[in-house]
Design a protein around this nucleic acid. Sequence first.
DNA 1: CATATATATGTCAAAAAGTGCCATTTGGTG
DNA 2: CACCAAATGGCACTTTTTGACATATATATG
Lengths: 162, 162
Amino acid sequence: MSKSAIWCQWTLGAKVFKGHYVNSINEKGRLSIPSKFRDVLSQWDTDHLIITKSLDKCLMAFASEDWEKMERKASSLSTVRKADIIFKRHVMGSAEECQIDSQGRILVPASLRDYADLKKKCLIVGIVDRFEIWDIEIYDAYMKEALKDPESLRTELAELGL
Amino acid sequence: MSKSAIWCQWTLGAKVFKGHYVNSINEKGRLSIPSKFRDVLSQWDTDHLIITKSLDKCLMAFASEDWEKMERKASSLSTVRKADIIFKRHVMGSAEECQIDSQGRILVPASLRDYADLKKKCLIVGIVDRFEIWDIEIYDAYMKEALKDPESLRTELAELGL
DNA sequence: CATATATATGTCAAAAAGTGCCATTTGGTG
DNA sequence: CACCAAATGGCACTTTTTGACATATATATG
């Protein structure tokens, strides 16, 4: 499937994940999914998410349709090439299906909670076809670092036509 | 059999092994299999696993159906080529059948336990048609090393369209 | 061959983790 | 300010995991 085909899909009026939300996770790992995001999910008529580790210290959440695209990509990766295996172990291996309960919450599995070091306040960031879950302090520190050298970031992005 | 044929099988709603779980192995080598994985096994209507050594310092576990695929592949390997023989000795030769008990536990045979250096906390990683069992410290060290240069990993993966 | 030692298995119970439901709080909107 | 929807907190209940202990089986040793 070409990239442009995917892109078309998003331009045809489909709802996408966007925006920043700060929600709290409790001691047992329950976290409310922002209602706007539940709206987005409802267009796939699904009440579950696939949650997995990002390469960054945060989690990624997908609707199952989009997760399957990831799986398809992963299945074409090598079983011996190092980068490929690392990706499969880390990203594919840690994926878990999470049911959204009647009050719009999920239980974030313990190992994922630990990985992203989710404490209390979580930042939920919509990124078109998926969203990320960060511990808010970690996110703040990360962005502070990322924006420390804004000029070279501008240069890189400008090269991409932005 | 082509890769795409295998892939089709997974898209037809079959449950697959996925997710990271941290369980403890006791002094006698007993280890709980995550209940989600037992669900996956139940679709094959089986209560035993084939466990063997990975090329990495961890174990691999298969449902018997999928193990047979491995055996078929192995039987097509050369009897004289070095890599083939090593693979057969190491992976096929060390395979053991483990019964899941009424509480969902297996006894990990001593030789395999030693190989993977399983101490207390084990990480169990679902990888579609099999799962891996790691000592958690070894896994962390492995991933830390693997992710040490995240930028080049990102670059490599980006080249694959990820 | 009898005995000691280690290894394996079965069962029980405590502890930890996950789930469902209801009540309260929060925050936005008219 | 009153209303509504969204988010959170609390509690009871279920399932899963773990630890402990007793019994059984195997292996080694004198």
